[in-house]
Computed example of a mutant assay.
Amino acid sequence: MPLAESYLLRRGHFSEPGRLYMLTTITYQRQPLFQDFHRARLVVKQLRTSDQNQDCRSLAWVVMPDHLHWLIELKGVTLGTLMRRFKSRTAIALRKQGVRHKPIWQPGYQDHALRREESVVHVARYIVANPLRAGLVRSVRDYPHWDAVWL
């Protein structure tokens, strides 16, 4: 989608502090940048920085080779600000480690605001089971790049 039209993705969306969101973002051209253990851990560090900065409270996440799923409770920023800060910090950290792939992330992201009737634990299980469904591991416990507050 041309950048000039990317604003249409956000039309009608708003960020509500305290609300739970499932976010998904993809690497540029789905390059498997995070197959590398150390690169994936740089992404994990930036997820934790978002929590420390009080932008959100991470409930569950998984860093896949070419994308990220992230279940959060939004704090005092908009979703756009949260994702812009996260993507910027990860790109800077990865470039400092010698990653020359430009850009790192595709523009935009997908968000889903959880409804009251949706089970948060069910959504978290869906997120952390991603490596299993993708055939990367036989057990979720064998995949190193995920976390959930319930475990």
Score class of each variant (00 low, 15 high):
18 G>Q: 12
58 S>L: 05
21 Y>V: 05
21 Y>N: 00
130 N>A: 02
27 T>H: 02
26 I>T: 15
82 L>S: 02
62 V>C: 01
61 W>R: 05
108 G>S: 09
129 A>L: 10
3 L>Y: 11
69 H>V: 03
143 Y>Q: 09
118 E>P: 09
43 V>T: 04
8 L>Y: 07
136 L>C: 01
103 P>L: 08
151 L>H: 14
146 W>Q: 00
143 Y>M: 05
101 H>C: 12
5 E>Y: 12
110 Q>W: 15
7 Y>C: 12
142 D>G: 11
90 T>L: 06
5 E>R: 14
30 R>A: 13
36 D>N: 15
91 A>R: 01
126 Y>L: 09
120 V>Y: 07
52 Q>F: 08
64 M>E: 04
1 M>P: 04
35 Q>I: 14
97 Q>G: 14
48 R>P: 03
105 W>E: 14
106 Q>N: 13
121 V>D: 12
122 H>G: 08
54 Q>K: 10
125 R>H: 13
82 L>M: 09
41 R>H: 13
41 R>W: 08
20 L>H: 03
6 S>E: 08
97 Q>M: 12
77 V>M: 09
79 L>R: 03
62 V>A: 00
99 V>M: 14
14 F>D: 09
128 V>S: 02
22 M>P: 07
91 A>L: 11
4 A>P: 10
139 S>F: 10
47 L>T: 00
106 Q>E: 14
92 I>A: 14
45 K>G: 12
149 V>E: 09
57 R>I: 04
78 T>G: 01
22 M>A: 11
49 T>S: 14
95 R>G: 12
67 H>N: 05
65 P>L: 08
59 L>R: 03
71 L>P: 01
102 K>E: 15
118 E>C: 07
9 L>M: 12
76 G>S: 15
78 T>Y: 09
21 Y>H: 01
94 L>K: 00
20 L>F: 15
96 K>P: 02
40 A>W: 02
71 L>T: 07
80 G>P: 06
67 H>E: 03
48 R>A: 15
36 D>Y: 09
87 K>C: 06
101 H>G: 11
138 R>A: 13
73 E>D: 08
71 L>M: 01
126 Y>M: 02
55 D>E: 13
136 L>A: 03
49 T>F: 11
97 Q>I: 09
20 L>I: 15
53 N>M: 11
69 H>G: 01
29 Q>S: 13
68 L>E: 01
62 V>T: 04
143 Y>K: 08
47 L>P: 02
23 L>H: 10
69 H>P: 02
129 A>C: 13
132 L>P: 06
39 R>W: 07
98 G>N: 12
138 R>H: 14
33 L>I: 04
148 A>H: 00
93 A>W: 04
22 M>H: 13
116 R>Q: 11
34 F>V: 08
147 D>C: 02
66 D>H: 06
5 E>V: 06
55 D>F: 03
112 H>N: 02
72 I>D: 01
52 Q>T: 15
126 Y>I: 07
90 T>V: 12
131 P>V: 02
86 F>H: 00
115 R>P: 05
3 L>G: 10
19 R>G: 13
28 Y>S: 05
47 L>E: 04
115 R>T: 12
146 W>M: 03
136 L>D: 05
51 D>W: 01
142 D>W: 08
4 A>D: 06
107 P>R: 11
62 V>G: 06
19 R>L: 11
19 R>I: 10
9 L>I: 07
88 S>P: 08
32 P>L: 07
113 A>R: 10
128 V>R: 07
146 W>R: 00
